[in-house]
Amino acid sequence: MIACNFSFHYTSFKCEKNFGVFLAVITIDLTSISVTSAVISMAGKVMKKESLSIEGKQGEQVSLLIQNQIKKLLSLFENEPIQIKAVGVSVPGICYSKTGLVWAPNIPGWDNYPLLQDISYLLRGKNIRIKIDNNRTCCILGEHWQGAAKETKNAVYLAVGSGIGAGILIDGKILHGFNDAVGAIGWFAVDRTYKDAYSEKGCLESLASGKGIITRVKESLNIIDDYSGYFKDIKIQNLVIGDVFDAYKQKDPIAQKIIRESVELWGITAANIISAFNPEILIFGGGVFGPGIFFIDEIKSEAKKWAQPLSIDKVKFSPSQLGNNAGLFGAGHLALGRF
Protein backbone atom coordinates (compact mmCIF):
# COMPACT_ATOMS: atom_id res chain seq x y z
CA MET A 1 0.00 0.00 0.00
CA ILE A 2 1.34 3.41 -0.96
CA ALA A 3 0.40 6.65 0.74
CA CYS A 4 1.60 10.18 1.26
CA ASN A 5 0.75 11.81 4.61
CA PHE A 6 -2.39 10.23 6.04
CA SER A 7 -4.71 10.14 3.06
CA PHE A 8 -4.95 6.35 2.75
CA HIS A 9 -6.17 3.80 5.30
CA TYR A 10 -3.59 1.45 6.72
CA THR A 11 -3.00 -0.88 9.64
CA SER A 12 0.02 -0.53 11.89
CA PHE A 13 2.48 -3.34 12.51
CA LYS A 14 1.72 -4.96 15.86
CA CYS A 15 4.86 -6.92 16.69
CA GLU A 16 8.55 -6.54 16.07
CA LYS A 17 9.24 -10.18 15.28
CA ASN A 18 7.18 -12.28 12.86
CA PHE A 19 7.94 -16.03 12.44
CA GLY A 20 11.58 -15.50 13.39
CA VAL A 21 11.99 -12.50 11.11
CA PHE A 22 12.47 -9.01 12.51
CA LEU A 23 10.31 -6.32 10.95
CA ALA A 24 11.94 -3.00 10.14
CA VAL A 25 11.52 0.13 8.03
CA ILE A 26 13.77 2.22 5.83
CA THR A 27 13.73 5.87 6.79
CA ILE A 28 14.94 8.81 4.72
CA ASP A 29 15.51 12.31 6.09
CA LEU A 30 16.03 14.79 3.27
CA THR A 31 17.21 18.31 4.08
CA SER A 32 18.33 21.19 1.90
CA ILE A 33 21.95 20.02 2.23
CA SER A 34 21.91 16.25 2.80
CA VAL A 35 20.03 12.98 2.72
CA THR A 36 20.26 10.58 5.66
CA SER A 37 19.05 7.02 5.30
CA ALA A 38 18.62 4.34 7.94
CA VAL A 39 17.05 1.02 8.79
CA ILE A 40 15.12 1.22 12.07
CA SER A 41 13.47 -1.65 13.92
CA MET A 42 9.95 -1.43 15.28
CA ALA A 43 11.44 -0.91 18.73
CA GLY A 44 13.30 2.15 17.50
CA LYS A 45 16.76 0.60 17.17
CA VAL A 46 18.91 2.07 14.38
CA MET A 47 20.43 -0.88 12.54
CA LYS A 48 22.22 1.05 9.79
CA LYS A 49 22.63 4.75 9.06
CA GLU A 50 24.38 6.85 6.41
CA SER A 51 24.39 10.53 5.45
CA LEU A 52 25.32 11.97 2.05
CA SER A 53 25.60 15.52 0.79
CA ILE A 54 23.27 16.71 -1.97
CA GLU A 55 25.45 19.73 -2.72
CA GLY A 56 25.34 20.58 -6.43
CA LYS A 57 22.41 18.25 -7.08
CA GLN A 58 18.91 19.23 -8.16
CA GLY A 59 15.65 17.80 -9.46
CA GLU A 60 15.88 14.15 -10.46
CA GLN A 61 19.48 13.91 -9.25
CA VAL A 62 18.31 14.25 -5.65
CA SER A 63 15.57 11.67 -6.20
CA LEU A 64 18.07 9.23 -7.71
CA LEU A 65 20.30 9.63 -4.67
CA ILE A 66 17.35 8.75 -2.42
CA GLN A 67 16.43 5.78 -4.61
CA ASN A 68 20.01 4.51 -4.60
CA GLN A 69 20.08 4.63 -0.80
CA ILE A 70 16.84 2.66 -0.62
CA LYS A 71 18.20 0.05 -3.05
CA LYS A 72 21.45 -0.14 -1.10
CA LEU A 73 19.67 -0.77 2.20
CA LEU A 74 17.31 -3.36 0.68
CA SER A 75 20.31 -5.18 -0.76
CA LEU A 76 22.28 -4.95 2.49
CA PHE A 77 19.58 -6.74 4.50
CA GLU A 78 18.40 -9.07 1.73
CA ASN A 79 19.99 -12.18 3.26
CA GLU A 80 19.38 -11.22 6.88
CA PRO A 81 16.40 -12.32 9.04
CA ILE A 82 14.98 -8.82 8.64
CA GLN A 83 11.94 -7.90 6.58
CA ILE A 84 11.60 -4.32 5.33
CA LYS A 85 7.89 -3.52 5.56
CA ALA A 86 7.80 0.17 4.68
CA VAL A 87 9.75 3.24 3.58
CA GLY A 88 9.21 6.56 5.32
CA VAL A 89 10.53 9.84 3.90
CA SER A 90 10.83 13.23 5.56
CA VAL A 91 11.05 16.17 3.11
CA PRO A 92 11.97 19.85 3.71
CA GLY A 93 8.76 21.43 2.44
CA ILE A 94 5.30 20.09 1.68
CA CYS A 95 4.15 16.67 0.46
CA TYR A 96 0.73 17.11 -1.10
CA SER A 97 -1.39 14.21 0.12
CA LYS A 98 -3.70 14.23 -2.91
CA THR A 99 -0.94 13.94 -5.51
CA GLY A 100 2.26 12.77 -3.83
CA LEU A 101 4.08 15.79 -5.27
CA VAL A 102 6.70 17.51 -3.12
CA TRP A 103 7.35 21.24 -2.87
CA ALA A 104 10.82 21.82 -1.43
CA PRO A 105 11.84 25.45 -2.10
CA ASN A 106 15.44 25.01 -0.95
CA ILE A 107 16.10 22.18 -3.45
CA PRO A 108 16.33 23.37 -7.07
CA GLY A 109 13.85 21.61 -9.34
CA TRP A 110 11.56 20.50 -6.52
CA ASP A 111 8.67 22.94 -6.99
CA ASN A 112 6.29 20.00 -7.59
CA TYR A 113 8.55 16.99 -7.69
CA PRO A 114 6.92 13.51 -8.16
CA LEU A 115 8.88 11.77 -5.40
CA LEU A 116 6.11 9.32 -4.52
CA GLN A 117 5.91 8.27 -8.16
CA ASP A 118 9.68 7.71 -8.33
CA ILE A 119 9.85 5.57 -5.20
CA SER A 120 6.69 3.67 -6.16
CA TYR A 121 8.27 2.71 -9.47
CA LEU A 122 11.48 1.68 -7.71
CA LEU A 123 9.56 -0.63 -5.35
CA ARG A 124 7.07 -1.94 -7.91
CA GLY A 125 6.15 -5.58 -7.28
CA LYS A 126 7.32 -5.43 -3.67
CA ASN A 127 4.95 -5.44 -0.71
CA ILE A 128 6.49 -2.31 0.78
CA ARG A 129 4.41 0.65 1.86
CA ILE A 130 5.64 4.20 1.18
CA LYS A 131 4.90 7.19 3.40
CA ILE A 132 6.10 10.76 2.81
CA ASP A 133 5.56 13.82 4.96
CA ASN A 134 7.15 17.17 5.72
CA ASN A 135 10.11 17.48 8.06
CA ARG A 136 8.28 19.42 10.77
CA THR A 137 5.61 16.71 11.03
CA CYS A 138 8.25 13.97 11.06
CA CYS A 139 10.18 15.76 13.81
CA ILE A 140 7.21 15.87 16.17
CA LEU A 141 6.43 12.23 15.33
CA GLY A 142 10.02 11.29 16.12
CA GLU A 143 9.91 13.08 19.47
CA HIS A 144 6.55 11.46 20.23
CA TRP A 145 7.94 8.00 19.49
CA GLN A 146 11.44 8.16 20.96
CA GLY A 147 12.01 11.63 22.39
CA ALA A 148 10.74 14.52 24.49
CA ALA A 149 7.03 14.12 23.65
CA LYS A 150 6.64 10.43 24.54
CA GLU A 151 4.07 10.92 27.26
CA THR A 152 1.81 13.55 25.72
CA LYS A 153 -0.89 13.96 23.09
CA ASN A 154 -0.38 17.73 22.83
CA ALA A 155 3.05 18.89 21.68
CA VAL A 156 4.62 21.26 19.17
CA TYR A 157 8.08 20.91 17.63
CA LEU A 158 9.59 24.29 16.75
CA ALA A 159 12.26 23.71 14.11
CA VAL A 160 14.70 26.55 13.49
CA GLY A 161 17.40 25.78 10.96
CA SER A 162 17.87 27.08 7.43
CA GLY A 163 14.10 27.64 7.61
CA ILE A 164 11.49 27.75 10.37
CA GLY A 165 8.54 25.41 10.82
CA ALA A 166 6.36 23.75 13.44
CA GLY A 167 5.16 20.16 13.71
CA ILE A 168 1.87 20.15 15.62
CA LEU A 169 0.37 17.25 17.59
CA ILE A 170 -2.98 18.12 19.19
CA ASP A 171 -5.27 15.67 20.99
CA GLY A 172 -3.16 12.83 19.64
CA LYS A 173 -3.55 13.90 16.01
CA ILE A 174 -1.11 15.49 13.59
CA LEU A 175 -2.45 18.66 11.97
CA HIS A 176 -2.02 19.03 8.20
CA GLY A 177 -4.61 21.53 7.00
CA PHE A 178 -6.45 21.98 3.71
CA ASN A 179 -3.31 22.13 1.57
CA ASP A 180 -0.92 20.19 3.83
CA ALA A 181 0.83 23.43 4.80
CA VAL A 182 0.06 23.59 8.54
CA GLY A 183 3.11 24.66 10.51
CA ALA A 184 4.67 26.92 7.87
CA ILE A 185 5.31 29.47 10.59
CA GLY A 186 8.27 30.99 8.80
CA TRP A 187 5.55 33.22 7.37
CA PHE A 188 4.49 34.51 10.78
CA ALA A 189 4.23 38.29 10.59
CA VAL A 190 6.52 39.61 13.33
CA ASP A 191 7.50 42.92 11.73
CA ARG A 192 5.08 45.81 11.30
CA THR A 193 6.92 47.04 8.20
CA TYR A 194 6.54 44.76 5.17
CA LYS A 195 9.61 44.09 3.02
CA ASP A 196 9.70 42.48 -0.42
CA ALA A 197 12.15 39.86 0.87
CA TYR A 198 9.37 38.42 3.07
CA SER A 199 7.39 37.24 0.03
CA GLU A 200 9.89 34.48 -0.76
CA LYS A 201 10.74 33.04 2.66
CA GLY A 202 8.34 34.70 5.07
CA CYS A 203 8.89 37.42 7.64
CA LEU A 204 9.95 35.31 10.64
CA GLU A 205 12.18 33.06 8.56
CA SER A 206 13.89 36.07 6.96
CA LEU A 207 14.70 37.52 10.38
CA ALA A 208 15.30 34.63 12.77
CA SER A 209 16.17 31.42 10.89
CA GLY A 210 19.77 30.29 10.59
CA LYS A 211 19.98 31.63 7.04
CA GLY A 212 18.17 34.78 8.04
CA ILE A 213 20.56 35.49 10.91
CA ILE A 214 23.60 34.93 8.71
CA THR A 215 22.15 37.22 6.02
CA ARG A 216 21.53 39.94 8.59
CA VAL A 217 25.10 39.67 9.89
CA LYS A 218 26.48 40.00 6.36
CA GLU A 219 24.26 43.01 5.65
CA SER A 220 25.43 44.69 8.86
CA LEU A 221 29.09 44.08 8.06
CA ASN A 222 28.63 45.61 4.61
CA ILE A 223 27.49 48.95 6.01
CA ILE A 224 30.12 49.36 8.75
CA ASP A 225 33.39 50.95 7.60
CA ASP A 226 35.48 50.72 10.77
CA TYR A 227 34.39 47.29 12.05
CA SER A 228 37.00 45.55 14.22
CA GLY A 229 34.97 42.81 15.92
CA TYR A 230 34.89 39.00 15.91
CA PHE A 231 34.05 38.59 12.21
CA LYS A 232 36.99 40.61 10.86
CA ASP A 233 39.19 37.51 10.54
CA ILE A 234 36.43 35.23 9.15
CA LYS A 235 35.74 34.76 5.44
CA ILE A 236 32.19 36.07 5.29
CA GLN A 237 31.22 33.79 2.40
CA ASN A 238 31.95 30.81 4.70
CA LEU A 239 30.01 32.15 7.68
CA VAL A 240 27.89 29.55 9.54
CA ILE A 241 25.42 29.94 12.38
CA GLY A 242 27.91 28.60 14.93
CA ASP A 243 30.19 31.55 14.13
CA VAL A 244 27.43 33.98 15.05
CA PHE A 245 26.87 32.34 18.43
CA ASP A 246 30.63 32.27 19.06
CA ALA A 247 30.74 35.97 18.23
CA TYR A 248 27.88 36.57 20.65
CA LYS A 249 29.87 34.93 23.44
CA GLN A 250 32.79 37.21 22.59
CA LYS A 251 30.45 40.21 22.91
CA ASP A 252 30.65 41.19 19.25
CA PRO A 253 28.19 44.09 18.88
CA ILE A 254 26.66 42.86 15.61
CA ALA A 255 26.15 39.31 16.90
CA GLN A 256 24.83 40.58 20.24
CA LYS A 257 22.22 42.78 18.57
CA ILE A 258 21.00 40.17 16.07
CA ILE A 259 20.91 37.26 18.53
CA ARG A 260 19.09 39.38 21.14
CA GLU A 261 16.51 40.35 18.50
CA SER A 262 16.20 36.70 17.44
CA VAL A 263 15.58 35.56 21.01
CA GLU A 264 12.80 38.13 21.23
CA LEU A 265 11.28 36.89 17.95
CA TRP A 266 11.53 33.24 19.05
CA GLY A 267 9.77 34.19 22.29
CA ILE A 268 6.95 35.95 20.42
CA THR A 269 6.66 32.95 18.10
CA ALA A 270 6.46 30.58 21.07
CA ALA A 271 3.77 32.78 22.62
CA ASN A 272 1.69 32.69 19.45
CA ILE A 273 1.99 28.91 19.18
CA ILE A 274 1.07 28.40 22.84
CA SER A 275 -1.89 30.76 22.70
CA ALA A 276 -3.21 29.12 19.53
CA PHE A 277 -2.67 25.42 20.32
CA ASN A 278 -2.31 25.08 24.12
CA PRO A 279 0.39 22.35 24.01
CA GLU A 280 1.73 20.54 27.04
CA ILE A 281 5.28 20.75 25.71
CA LEU A 282 7.08 22.98 23.19
CA ILE A 283 10.19 21.31 21.78
CA PHE A 284 13.05 23.32 20.27
CA GLY A 285 15.05 21.67 17.49
CA GLY A 286 16.81 22.26 14.20
CA GLY A 287 20.35 23.40 13.50
CA VAL A 288 20.01 26.72 15.35
CA PHE A 289 18.94 24.96 18.55
CA GLY A 290 22.21 23.32 18.87
CA PRO A 291 24.07 26.42 20.01
CA GLY A 292 20.83 28.32 20.58
CA ILE A 293 19.56 25.86 23.16
CA PHE A 294 21.15 27.91 25.96
CA PHE A 295 18.59 30.66 25.31
CA ILE A 296 15.49 28.56 26.06
CA ASP A 297 14.92 30.13 29.49
CA GLU A 298 15.17 33.61 27.98
CA ILE A 299 12.81 32.61 25.17
CA LYS A 300 10.28 31.42 27.74
CA SER A 301 10.61 34.67 29.69
CA GLU A 302 9.88 36.60 26.51
CA ALA A 303 6.97 34.32 25.66
CA LYS A 304 5.41 34.96 29.06
CA LYS A 305 5.00 38.61 28.16
CA TRP A 306 2.81 37.77 25.18
CA ALA A 307 1.14 34.38 25.65
CA GLN A 308 -2.25 33.43 27.06
CA PRO A 309 -1.39 33.32 30.79
CA LEU A 310 -3.11 30.05 31.71
CA SER A 311 -1.50 28.23 28.78
CA ILE A 312 2.03 29.58 29.24
CA ASP A 313 2.01 28.62 32.93
CA LYS A 314 1.32 24.97 32.05
CA VAL A 315 3.60 24.43 29.05
CA LYS A 316 7.07 22.90 29.31
CA PHE A 317 9.89 24.29 27.16
CA SER A 318 12.28 21.50 26.17
CA PRO A 319 15.21 20.91 23.84
CA SER A 320 14.85 18.09 21.36
CA GLN A 321 15.99 14.77 22.75
CA LEU A 322 16.70 13.38 19.28
CA GLY A 323 18.62 16.31 17.82
CA ASN A 324 19.36 15.88 14.13
CA ASN A 325 17.73 12.43 14.18
CA ALA A 326 14.21 13.66 14.97
CA GLY A 327 13.09 13.68 11.34
CA LEU A 328 14.68 10.30 10.70
CA PHE A 329 12.84 8.65 13.62
CA GLY A 330 9.65 10.46 12.68
CA ALA A 331 9.77 9.11 9.14
CA GLY A 332 10.14 5.66 10.69
CA HIS A 333 7.20 6.22 13.02
CA LEU A 334 5.16 7.40 10.04
CA ALA A 335 6.13 4.35 7.99
CA LEU A 336 5.22 1.98 10.81
CA GLY A 337 1.65 3.24 10.57
CA ARG A 338 1.33 4.19 14.20
CA PHE A 339 -0.31 7.50 13.28
Rank of each mutant, 00 (worst) to 15 (best):
G287I: 11
Q308S: 13
G287A: 11
L282T: 04
F284V: 00
D313T: 05
F295E: 02
I293R: 15
E280I: 00
K300T: 04
I273W: 00
K305P: 04
A303N: 09
A276C: 14
I299G: 10
S311Q: 08
D297I: 07
G285P: 07
F284N: 01
I283K: 03
G286M: 07
E298D: 13
I281P: 00
I283C: 06
F317Q: 10
E298S: 13
E280R: 03
S301F: 10
F284M: 05
G287F: 14
A307N: 07
F294L: 13
S318L: 13
P279N: 05
G290D: 15
K316C: 12
G290S: 15
A307Y: 12
F295S: 01
A271K: 07
A271C: 03
N272D: 07
E302L: 11
S301M: 13
L282P: 01
F317D: 06
I299K: 10
K304E: 14
I274F: 00
A270W: 01
P309G: 04
K314P: 03
A303V: 05
F277Q: 05
I283R: 02
I273H: 01
P279A: 04
I312W: 07
A271M: 01
I283W: 02
K314T: 07
L282W: 03
K300F: 09
V315T: 05
W306I: 13
D297H: 12
S318P: 06
F317M: 05
K304L: 10
F284H: 04
P309T: 10
E280G: 09
G287P: 11
I293Y: 15
I281M: 01
I273E: 02
K305L: 13
F317E: 08
S275D: 03
P291A: 15
I293L: 15
A303T: 06
A270N: 03
I274H: 00
S301Q: 15
F289W: 14
I281Q: 00
V315I: 09
P309L: 03
G286Q: 07
E298P: 02
P279F: 00
E280L: 02
D313A: 08
L310H: 06
I273K: 01
A307S: 13
E302R: 14
Q308M: 15
F317Y: 12
S318M: 14
S301E: 15
A271P: 05
G286D: 10
Q308D: 14
I274E: 00
N278S: 12
A303D: 04
I296L: 15
S301D: 14
S275P: 01
F294N: 11
K304H: 12
I299A: 07
D297V: 06
G287Y: 11
I296G: 10
G286S: 09
F295V: 04
S318Q: 12
I274A: 01
A270H: 04
A276V: 10
F277W: 06
I274W: 00
I312F: 06
E298T: 07
